[in-house]
């Protein structure tokens, strides 16, 4: 949203602003594309994760018998992740724990980046749709790998003429997943922009803390949990036993 030359109905007064801004134009295969705020925020989040990972790695290399400080935090995070993935995927957890952990951390940090004054990258449909496409590829890869020809014949179950509906159902998965994440984060971003942009100054003291807690922290954490949970449920559903 916000692309093109259309008038921004609410944002035209320069006060309420939650659109994606174009920062640096460059030429790509004959068309002008832009480095947007989403890219910059995503880069900052990736840097944060990478730096944290490097520090944690250094700490774990020289780990103590009795954990203290950061080592405690890292061990707690890894144990929580193992319990989270293991309880859903069972014996297949080992193969997917790295991806699920990365996905969860990235989506969580993206969602709560609104708290730090950034525009969340997950409020850009491009980001969420890419994540959902990765999930879709994982689902279909496991479907064909584990069910072999059953992946095709399964579409004709339980009745042959239900084939179109089953096919649409397969392709609706990434769309509904991406729209769920996008809609949640976007609604939070719009609400915060409206609150900061339209109301008088004395309402903006103290009250935004409660809104940030709900829209950024609570909703963001729930959506990160739901996105990675649904990925695991769909993938392990196709793997079967």
């Amino acid at each position: 949203m916000g692309y093109g030359t259309l008038p921004m109905l609410l944002a035209s007064d320069g006060e309420v602003d939650f659109s994606i801004h174009h920062l640096i134009p460059y030429q790509f295969m004959g068309t002008t594309v832009y480095i947007t705020t989403s890219h910059v925020c995503m880069l900052l989040i990736m840097l944060t994760i990478i730096i944290f990972a490097l520090i944690a790695r250094k700490k774990i290399m020289h780990a103590d018998e009795v954990p203290t400080g950061l080592q405690n935090v890292v061990e707690f995070a890894v144990e929580t992740l193992q319990g989270f993935v293991g309880s859903t995927m069972g014996s297949h957890a080992g193969k997917y724990i790295n991806y699920i952990g990365t996905l969860f951390l990235f989506v969580l940090l993206s969602n709560i980046s609104g708290l730090f004054g950034l525009r969340p990258p997950t409020a850009d449909y491009g980001t969420t749709f890419s994540l959902a496409i990765i999930t879709f590829c994982m689902i279909q890869y496991n479907n064909f790998k584990c069910n072999k020809f059953g992946a095709i014949t399964g579409l004709f179950q339980p009745l042959p003429f239900l084939f179109p509906i089953n096919l649409i159902g397969e392709f609706a998965t990434p769309i509904s997943m991406s729209l769920r994440l996008f809609g949640n984060v976007m609604s939070g971003t719009v609400m915060m922009a409206l609150f900061y942009g339209l109301l008088p100054i004395f309402v903006k003291i103290g009250i935004p803390a409660a809104l940030h807690t709900y829209f950024d922290l609570f909703s963001g954490a729930i959506q990160a949990y739901v996105f990675s949970m649904l990925t695991m449920v769909f993938v392990s559903d196709k793997i079967g036993e």
Binding site: M1, G2, L6, M8, L9, L10, A11, S19, S176, L179, R180, F182, G183, N184, M186, S187, V190, I222, Q223, V226, L230
Partner: peptide, 19 residues
Amino acid sequence: AVAETTGLYGLVVALLLMY
């Protein structure tokens, strides 16, 4: 969170219509 999806479809339609 899954039940919320239909409401979010409405929200996306509203945002598209407005912006």
